[in-house]
Design a protein around this nucleic acid. Structure first.
Lengths: 203, 203
DNA sequence: ATCATTGGATAGTTTCACTATCTAAATTAG
DNA sequence: CTAATTTAGATAGTGAAACTATCCAATGAT
């Protein structure tokens, strides 16, 4: 298929496709001459993934990393997760004290080496941000956060398909990145529902 | 205190403070003459909140909404949540089919009127994005998502302080917005820990 | 008295994700 | 076989967002 058809099929404008080609998000088509190339279904599928990731708030640089991981996956699940997480985690200065973050990790069942230092830093940064705003999370709520994310993470990891490596890679990499907006949206919905349960029609 | 001191105290550059003043995020100081003004502790606290929100990925327009809600809070908790959610939820086209989102809402204990239509739309958009990427969330995992967010949301709503309205407003508005990065970071950490539990050192 | 500082206005910068234009070559329609 | 259309590739431009810099006249501190 030619670029115009690819564009129509995936619902992405031609200049944007050219941009993704330039940025290395989309592989080159098969060249048929010096100024012509053909694209296949793989290009359509990849374009859909790119758009979903961009929708999910992943930067173009992050998308490039995610796709690179899909293309050349590491052999260990932990490294797979690490690559996916690196693409969505906010970049930031380190040097933040990790004590509180480490305590939370232990409550999640952390054992030395069980997670990358970057993940501790992410948590520490989020805690620091809350702290600087003068906001304190009540202990009960923090406990619920840990229980909630453990429930979620265990099910996600239990759901990793083990039949084929390709499926596993796709599941882990896309699942961790694309589910973030869903989880946040579900939380907002659950909050409103819980609020009505506790404060019924205080009109 | 003068602007230079405010800047030093809050760790925000003077031009940025001026920008926040222009944008209406920070209230004017008390004028002492035509070209002078004084700032107080409230300005420091507010600057810290602004930075925390910006850190958390909230846009300046969103921060403006959050602060406006803090300043003039609605009387009902649901409206409070709605205002906080409106500031962080991604803006988007509607017209997305809500059937799947509504089904999830029902599994969370939804009753008519229990949450704003915008929250359904948020969920629907996230589902649609996953769908367009060709990504399917296994039923067990979705069940865990619902259980996890319900645990989290119930604890959050149960933790709303009822002694003073000011505290309640601050808790709800800042808690819903500032905790998002923490939850995502905790989830990433929990995923890595769960992965090591399930796939121990597949070196 | 004088000299750095301030508020306010205006303009410039950086980054990001596109979007538009141009050119020469190549396909396709007639 | 010619003419219109399409394409790849290069380069440049756009618009939004969040700052950042520069002026200026008027203060305020010394």
């Amino acid at each position: 298929m030619r670029m115009a058809e690819l564009s129509a099929e995936a619902g992405v404008p031609v200049p944007t496709i050219k941009y993704y080609l330039r940025e290395g998000l989309l592989p080159q088509g098969v060249r048929t001459s010096a100024t012509q190339a053909r694209y296949g279904d793989a290009h359509i599928r990849r374009l859909r993934v790119i758009r979903a990731l961009v929708d999910a708030g992943v930067s173009v640089a992050g998308v490039r990393k995610v796709l690179a991981t899909l293309d050349e996956p590491p052999h260990e699940v932990a490294d797979l997760l690490g690559a996916a997480h690196a693409a969505v985690a906010p970049r930031g200065d380190d040097g933040i004290p990790l004590a509180d973050a480490r305590r939370l990790a232990e409550r999640l069942g952390f054992r030395p080496g069980a997670c990358e230092p970057e993940r501790l830093t992410d948590v520490a940064r989020a805690l620091d941000s809350l702290d600087r705003a003068g906001f304190v999370i009540p202990p009960d709520v923090m406990t619920a956060y840990l229980e909630g994310v453990r429930t979620i993470a265990r099910a996600e990891i239990a759901g990793v398909p083990v039949d084929t490596p390709e499926e596993a890679v796709r599941y882990v990499v896309l699942g961790t990145t694309l589910a973030e907006p869903l989880l946040l949206a579900l939380r907002r919905m659950a909050e409103q529902i819980a609020a009505v349960e506790r404060f019924p029609s205080d009109t």
